[in-house]
């Protein structure tokens, strides 16, 4: 079979087997039972009014199928994603759903084939307008979650059947470890405050300028010295003395696995969150990666991302596709 013929055959198969699934709701089951009973009664007695009622009930089933099909047609869904997803904590997730023509009603969106619990709904989707659907999702565990598509379900118009269509939309959602309560103390700081005097080796404070160095990935761009950067042709950041902050390097010991590893990761995440919240520098040392101590939200993200990938094969790029 030539490739072109194969392609046509695949198209025909896809056309004959539309990506829809149909599930009868609880009300729908009762409805079908009553319809069956009315049908039996009509056939048994020959009562024309029962035939009329049966016709009405069956027509409503057909109309329900047609209207729900129209609802799921021409839909486009885009993942807006989430700011941060933590394991076993509800996090706000968003999809942008739109329809070129025609209206849609009672749509429920969820991630298909992903261990994410929760769904979002939209009552009325106007034609041509993009609607932002919000949902509180929950992930059972940390790590990358492979997203294959978005499941769109509607029970429109009568709630008898739930018709579902999965819109393929591949992506990855990185779920950060839960920031549980840290039982253990983070230990001694690597560096502490040295009286009132500035330490020239601690160069991320708000004191006097100590020098310039190349801006590393993820560092705050506000530190860039634009004049020097322009003259050198590369981004240079200003280093200043600091006086009060301490520096911790948190460690996830190698050799941990399973539940033990998860517990340690959650603990480190919680410690990092607390220390960074207090304004200290925090670094991370794992068996595979080492993060230089730094402060701020960006650093917390780096730490959480690193912890989330621990035990998984990290991607080449450092970005979450879905988030």
């Amino acid at each position: 079979m030539s490739p072109r013929l194969k392609q046509r055959w695949a198209r025909l198969r896809a056309f004959l087997r539309p990506p829809r699934t149909l599930k009868v709701t609880r009300v729908g089951r009762t409805y079908l039972v009553v319809t069956f009973g009315v049908g039996l009664g009509a056939l048994n007695t020959g009562n024309n009014l029962l035939y009329l009622l049966l016709g009405m009930l069956l027509s409503m089933v057909v109309v329900s199928g047609v209207l729900s099909e129209r609802c799921l047609r021409d839909l486009t869904v885009r993942r807006v994603g989430t700011d941060a997803a933590f394991a076993r904590e509800p996090f706000a997730f968003r999809w942008a759903v739109a329809r070129k023509q025609g209206h849609a009603f009672a749509l429920t969106l969820a991630e298909a084939d992903a261990p994410l619990a929760g769904e979002g709904g939209v009552g009325y989707l106007r034609a041509g307008a993009e609607h932002l659907v919000r949902a509180d999702l929950t992930a059972p565990r940390r790590g990358p979650v492979t997203l294959t598509g978005v499941r769109v379900t509607t029970t429109w118009p009568l709630g008898l059947f739930a018709k579902t269509r999965v819109l393929p939309l591949p992506g990855t959602l990185l779920v950060y470890p839960r920031r549980g309560y840290a039982c253990r103390d983070p230990g001694e700081a690597v560096r502490g405050p040295v009286g009132d005097a500035g330490n020239p080796r601690r160069n991320d404070g708000t004191g006097d300028v100590t020098g310039l160095r190349e801006l590393a990935d993820g560092e705050d761009a506000r530190r860039v010295h634009w004049l020097k950067s322009a003259s050198q042709g590369k981004l240079l950041r200003v280093e200043r003395e600091r006086e009060e902050r301490r520096t911790w390097v948190l460690t996830v010991e190698s050799g941990l696995a399973g539940e033990e590893l998860e517990r340690r990761i959650e603990e480190v995440a919680a410690q990092a969150h607390r220390l960074l919240d207090e304004g200290h520098d925090v670094g991370l040392d794992t068996a595979t990666q080492r993060l230089r101590p730094a402060t701020g939200i960006a650093q917390e993200r780096h730490i959480l991302r690193t912890l989330a990938w621990l035990g998984f094969e990290a991607p080449e790029s450092d970005e979450e596709a879905a988030a």
Binding site: L52, G55, L58, S59, L67, H103
Partner: peptide
């Protein structure tokens, strides 16, 4: 859309009948 659907349902019921 619901009115249209119900109209079709009534027509379908008549046709079935």
């Amino acid at each position: 859309p619901l009115a249209t659907g119900v109209g079709f349902a009534v027509a379908g019921a008549v046709a079935f009948f």
